[in-house]
Nucleic acid binder design. Structure first.
Length: 484
RNA sequence: GGCGGCAUGGCCAAGUGGUAAGGCAGAGGAUUGCAAAUCCUUUACCCCCAGUUCGAAUCUGGGUGCCGCCUCCA
């Protein structure tokens, strides 16, 4: 079986095969670090994290590079607004990015170059383009000449001859006047007074947005890479321009595969900073949604389709995760418990589950179907937990039989970046009564129950619930509790 | 206007020629003093019309609706 991926370049899916057998190079356009990441970023990076994990699981050696755009108008604006500097804004948001990604269990990229630290490669590339006649200077700016590059528009399906004055009113007249074609874009922007700038053969200034990715890809991974990833909103102009720059310089294809994820929508509209309808990763996590719930929410839909963010859908994912998490926790117990006792040879059903999972993932990363395989695997585990709690005599022997299953569940879950998550349990540092006080209340309620004083027992239960403590009666007269 | 995508049960969402995965919610059951939690069971002819086919959610044509990109954007 082979992995099939939908290539935006051809708009169809085809078997994936890296340029060098067993080795995959992938690049993902990162964030402009002017603010916190929102759910749209989370979706994108979760999707590519799963791709990477799946490739690794499949035995590939993967080199993954993701950039930081740390010089840009938005960063400068933000710095001006808060009276700090470009560096301060960038540094802060890079730290936040790292923390957010870690919270979501997204594996860090192998290398994360920054635009401001890649200036030599950027200037070299611009110089090369100019030497080849693909770029021209104008008053301290340098532009890429799209008309000079055959094949411009091949990714986004645009035909230059059909392009009219779409840019009217959207670009400053000054910049427009300098361009030879409306689609020409800046490789180097001459510095305006007071702006931070870097020296260059064209005068002080800074790189345009698109050129950094071309330069970094080339520097870090070579002329042609296997996979280039990003959000669908980057197809035009960003990725189109990257292709043009890189291919004009090297004469080789920039990437063999272009993968694009669908947008996160809110009320049918794209979540974005400009619309103001965004939720930051951090805000969501702080509001009590767990990282794994978010992952499950994202992975339940196919990565290329739009994903509507609603409280209902999130709540559904949370409940779904609760069940899966319980199974994963039990699985972790089983595996570390009486290790080695269980029958090790995978039974037919296990082999089938593994196959089903792989087939789903091979089909353009059908995580929704892959998750179905996980839920099916989790089922007997959850059932076992229920029966053993009820003192089923057979449960103990079954636990051994389920060890291989438990191991497989954990393994496959980890391919999706899903891992057992501790409940926000007793030592959660929350406010309210402490464990000893709760234990005392539970004992009091037990006594009331024994005396058939159910009014009092219910009163204690309700009172604890008011304080955020939920009681869970177990068979055998035991009572667990959760801080909600 | 140009380019691209999507329409499956109450909700989310797989399935792309042989008679509908999974999750959530709902219903019934087990359990419980009653609940909650948990486990078990259960719930669809796939936007409309026409066509191709022995057979279509799945292919073709035509509608309708929604979304993305064309300006910074994951």
């Amino acid at each position: 079986m082979t992995l099939r991926l939908t290539n935006s370049l051809t708009r169809r899916s085809a078997p994936f095969e890296p340029l060098q057998a067993g080795q995959v190079s992938m690049y993902c356009c990162g964030v402009t670090v002017y603010d916190l990441c929102h759910l749209g970023h989370a979706r994108s990076y979760i999707a590519w994290d799963v791709l990477r994990r799946y490739l690794l699981w499949s035995g590939y050696q993967v080199t993954f590079v993701q950039n930081y755009t740390d010089i840009d108008d938005k960063i400068l604006n933000r710095a001006a607004k808060e009276g700090s500097s470009m560096e301060v804004v960038s540094e802060r948001n890079i730290d936040a990015f790292v923390a957010d990604m870690a919270a979501l269990n997204i594996l860090p990229a192998d290398r994360m170059p920054r635009a401001t630290q890649s200036l030599d490669a950027i200037r070299d590339l611009i110089g090369e383009l100019q030497a080849k006649g693909a770029a021209y200077g104008a008053d301290g700016d340098v532009y890429f000449a799209v008309m000079k590059h055959a094949g411009y528009g091949k990714l986004s399906g645009r035909d230059l001859s059909e392009q009219q004055q779409n840019a009217d009113g959207r670009v400053s007249g000054l910049e427009e006047a300098r361009k030879q074609h409306p689609f020409d874009f800046a490789l180097w922007k001459g510095a305006k007074p007071g702006e931070p700038s870097f020296p260059s053969p064209w005068g002080p200034g800074r790189p345009g947005w698109h050129i950094e990715c071309s330069a970094m890809v080339r520097q870090e991974l070579g002329d042609t890479i296997d996979l280039h990833l990003g959000g669908a909103d980057l197809i035009f102009p960003h990725h189109e321009n990257e292709i043009a720059q890189s291919e004009a310089a090297t004469g080789k294809p920039l990437a063999r595969w272009w993968l694009h994820n669908g947008m996160v929508n809110v009320g049918g509209e794209k979540m974005s900073k400009s619309l103001g309808n965004f939720t930051t990763i951090r805000a969501l996590l702080e509001s009590g949604t767990s990282a794994m719930t978010l992952r499950l929410f994202v992975l339940q839909a196919h990565y290329r389709k739009p994903l509507d963010f609603t409280q209902e859908a999130l709540a559904a994912a949370a409940t779904g995760w609760k069940g899966l998490n319980a199974a994963l926790q039990l699985a972790a117990q089983l595996v570390t418990g009486a290790a080695g006792d269980g029958p090790d040879g995978p039974s037919n059903s296990l082999a089938e589950a593994r196959l089903r999972f792989a087939a789903a993932m091979d089909d353009d990363l059908n995580t929704s179907a892959a998750l179905a395989a996980l839920f099916e695997l989790a089922k007997p585990l959850r059932s076992l937990a229920n029966r053993s709690e009820r003192g089923d005599a057979q449960a103990a022997s079954e636990a051994k039989a389920l060890q291989a299953e438990a191991r497989l569940l954990l393994e496959l879950a980890s391919v999706l970046g899903l891992k057992p998550e501790a409940e926000s349990g007793p030592e959660g540092g929350a406010t309210g009564p402490n464990a000893a006080e709760i234990a005392a209340q539970i004992a009091a309620r037990q006594a009331a129950k024994a005396a058939k004083n159910y009014g009092e027992a219910d009163r204690i239960r309700a009172s604890l619930l008011d304080q955020g403590i939920e009681l869970i009666d177990k068979p055998g007269g035991l009572t667990d509790w959760l801080r909600s």
